[in-house]
């Protein structure tokens, strides 16, 4: 399953969690997945639901247009951090401002991975070169933290999890399940961000990348539920 992805890629874990939740809810027949381009698009032939490949960064708009005409469908907006927080930040802000019915999953690895690991606005500055050195000089304030941006809006769910070890993946499952519950019950803007390894572009083994997230990146990005309504 999901063979086109690199070894250790977080997309595989994330999509498996979503698969499991959709199966549990029995909503496969009314689920449409809106995918962003780049690494997300590597899922497009493997996922078991109807899917649409959207222009880069426009997943939330395309999903909204769809949802406005078909309220009864489960619309999953699936994107990376580049789409969600760089090129598509406008859509993110306005969808949240209107608390529109959105079920968004953001895979955050801090990099533009498909093109070779260039830095996204979510990059913490911690990588292979400085992993063991003093990080006091890194400017973590420049990192885009979505909870700071969206807390002023009346949204229904916001959480951040990490796709690292079993404990964290179980927590991701709990969060996305709760997100689905809120989305199905009362709609509104629901987003879970998943901190994901990208061993290919961090140029590490899977284990090293997971340790990097657990020991360093999690200090910048707080894990947990920020808004639950």
């Amino acid at each position: 399953m999901y063979d086109m992805l690199c070894k250790g890629c977080g997309h595989r874990t994330a999509m498996s969690i979503i698969d499991r939740i959709i199966k549990e809810y029995g909503i496969k027949e009314k689920t449409i997945v809106f995918l962003d381009v780049a690494c997300c698009s590597l899922l497009m032939d493997d996922i078991e639901y109807d899917d649409v490949m959207c222009p880069h960064g426009r997943v939330l708009d395309v999903s909204r247009g769809y949802k406005m005409l078909r309220k009864d469908k489960v619309v999953i907006s699936y994107m990376g951090d580049g789409a969600a927080y760089a090129i598509g930040i406008e859509e993110m802000i306005h969808s949240a401002r209107e608390n529109f019915d959105i079920f968004a999953i953001v895979i955050n690895n801090g990099l533009y991975s498909m093109t070779g690991g260039q830095f996204a606005p979510t990059f913490t500055g911690i990588d292979r070169k400085n992993i063991d050195s003093d990080k006091s000089e890194l400017n973590f304030d420049k990192v885009l933290k979505i909870e700071n941006l969206l807390k002023s809006f009346n949204i229904n769910y916001l959480a951040r999890c990490a796709l690292t070890d079993k404990e964290n993946i179980d927590f991701s499952y709990e969060c996305i399940k709760k997100q689905m519950d809120i989305y199905m019950r009362k709609g509104g803007f629901c987003l879970t961000e998943l901190i994901s390894p990208c061993p290919t572009n961090y140029k590490m083994t899977i284990k090293e990348n997971i340790d990097l997230i657990d020991e360093n990146i999690k200090q910048v990005y707080k894990i947990g539920e920020f808004i639950v309504k």
Binding site: V52, C54, R58, D61, V62, G65, L69
Partner: peptide, 26 residues
Amino acid sequence: VKFISATSEISAINLCFGASVAGGRA
């Protein structure tokens, strides 16, 4: 008719994209 005041032309056309995917005349 479903109407939405988009926040840019980029947004407007992508909302139409979504509505067309839903089968609507956008």
